[in-house]
Design a protein around this nucleic acid. Structure first.
Lengths: 317, 317
DNA sequence: CTGAAAGCGCTTACAG
DNA sequence: CTGAAAGCGCTTACAG
């Protein structure tokens, strides 16, 4: 019935010898009253919370991103952390900084671009013990989960170049939402094209573009025509595929196509679409493991386990 | 230089007469030291935080949901709240309850299904002053943003029935991710079909189904054939559209099609796809307004402003 | 303006 | 087991 006893029981403090019956009595009452420890008070006392903030990057939100997040969050919850997503859609990260100041997360997972040295220092100073970046390449400040869009572009181009194509077309959405991924993928694609000594042209298209045919077909005709298309995602690849077939262009005989995301759509098309496979769900779970590892004082490698993107070859390439 | 003075300055307490120069001196130093008020301590003192938890419903995450969330979050941030998303992908809401216990949000926005009377009581008791539900119909406990999937189904069926179709086909994904929306939309569609005295058959299909043609076409042939399709979303509608055209079925002459989401894809197709328009971004902003209203002690109506879903008529119906 | 003080709800070391 | 106490960092009423 004393404050201390209750606290001991509820926190399962072994070193205090408290009879089974009191333990149970306390627990029962706590349950009945729906007692919830006041998190702010506990955090104040302990100097840290159990909250992990996950910054939602400025990515096009689709099923793939949702699945990756889901994997990370589920794993964190299994380890008894509370994962909360922050949705930076506005400015230059002040919102994230404020959010972190307000919830004092014990860990933060965020795109590398948002983890400036200054910000990392501030975080560390205010008790955020585990910080994980997600980015193209290893951060010098914190362990990084490599989620390389450049590698996506590279993989696609290499795949097509390996199959003898020397004139490639990168078909990319003009949509500003995709800018970040698109530009990184294009950069990787261009690098790889140079390395493989093949030509790469880029074609931007609006999602609502009625005249994709009008701009796409000419690039696939004539002397120096492209013989392979690397499309930003499966959806765009399938639009192109349909268009080519409609115009009597054989795939992959005349023109090869590689999409990206390896979505169910890719398997459903005829011919079946070759597509770049992004990091698997399992590899995302490594992010959660790393957070837990850091917080338990384990050493965590600078680069978190991840597979490089690879092309799943089907019938269009 | 006293604790109190600093606090007064940093919190802009007008009632204390403090000279301009001290004010500025304090602020300058605070800035230089990168002082951040300890949120847990402040929350403990004030008894409330500035955190708004937004529960991410178990919905298929796509651009539409992302935009809606973005609108709510942006508006909340503009009002100086910190919005954090909770991602319940696991169980029966224990995770959300735990998250709320841990961050002590001043407000919670969540799907009506997750706001049991018990939970609402607990929340209120622990300082969550504003609670907003998102659901099919007004909650008896808290103001509700009506986001009615049933109305989506109703709108589509009514639209087709109004155009003289008496035998409709609901084309829905089998995908478990969509169950929640799908079943609600189907329910509304069935109710409306009954009311309009038209027939409605449901066809479930896997996203990866190669043989959509095999199952779809027979329902569109024969004596009691369906003459109109209500598809779960624009993507599925477009798959069907393409299939019909491939098989020489005229749209909308032989079979009408209505999709859902009014996505850019709908405008891009030929013929252009009629599609159900969900609540606009502006109407989502009302959710953020309601939160702010409640916290400022204003009265908020039981049902938050929203438009009913309507069909944007194009060329396929 | 300052200084001392109280109190938010918690945990934990300490003397009984 | 209990009770009293301290202290996490903050805000605010109070007496100077």
């Amino acid at each position: 019935v004393s404050r201390a006893t209750v606290s001991y029981v509820l926190n399962d403090v072994e070193s205090q010898r408290i009879s089974q019956e009191t333990r149970e009595r306390v627990k029962r009452v706590a349950l009945r009253m729906g007692y919830q420890p006041h998190a702010a008070a506990r955090a104040l006392r302990d100097g840290n919370s159990t909250i992990v903030v996950v910054e939602l990057p400025y990515w096009p939100i689709g099923p793939a991103v949702a699945e990756a997040l889901s994997a990370v969050v589920t794993k964190l919850e299994a380890r008894d952390y509370t994962a909360l997503l922050h949705f930076e859609r506005t400015g230059r990260g002040e919102s994230l900084a404020r959010a972190c100041a307000r919830v004092q997360p014990v860990a933060l997972i965020a795109p590398a671009e948002e983890l400036s040295p200054q910000f990392v220092r501030t975080l560390r100073a205010s008790g955020t013990a585990a910080i994980i970046a997600i980015g193209e390449k290893p951060s010098r400040l914190v362990p990084t989960f490599i989620f390389s869009q450049e590698d996506v572009g590279r993989a696609a181009v290499r795949h097509l170049a390996d199959r003898g194509h020397i004139n490639l077309l990168a078909l990319m959405p003009a949509d500003p939402e995709t800018t970040r991924f698109r530009d990184a993928r294009l950069l990787g694609a261009e690098n790889e094209a140079e390395r493989c000594n093949v030509q790469l042209t880029t074609l931007l298209t609006e999602e609502s573009d009625d005249d994709l045919a009008g701009v796409l077909l000419p690039t696939l005709a004539g002397g120096n025509r492209a013989t392979a298309i690397y499309a930003y995602n499966d959806e765009l690849a399938l639009r192109a595929l349909e268009l080519l077939l409609d115009h009597g262009i054989a795939v992959p005989a005349d023109v090869a196509i590689v999409g990206c995301d390896n979505s169910p759509l890719a398997r459903a098309s005829r011919p079946r679409l070759s597509s770049v496979q992004l990091p698997s769900i399992e590899s995302w779970e490594a992010v959660a493991e790393a957070v837990d590892g850091l917080l338990r004082g384990r050493r965590v490698s600078r680069v978190l386990a991840t597979e490089a993107p690879t092309v799943i070859e089907r019938e269009t390439s």
